[in-house]
Amino acid sequence: MDVLYFAWVRERIGVPSERIETGAATVADLVAELSAREERYAAAFADTAALRVALDQTLATFDAPLAGVREVAFFPPMTGG
């Protein structure tokens, strides 16, 4: 699936997007898998309460299942307006 990062999450991980092959069942599982992979992910995902996630461009929660999802995006709380 495609994984996208925005704002400081993008800066901390170092890429705006990447394709990731994963068998993770939920967003939380994916976060755990990436965090175990490299320190930059662990740093970005250290406090998921400070993060938001969107699945196929719709806001979701970290316990949401990933089955059938094509695009996951991680970002800090939004600051529009």
């Binding site: 939004m78 600051t79 529009g80 307006g81």
Partner: peptide, 14 residues
Amino acid sequence: LMDYLKSRAPFWKK
């Protein structure tokens, strides 16, 4: 609209 755009539309200010 303003309240929702501020925290529910995916924009980030630097």
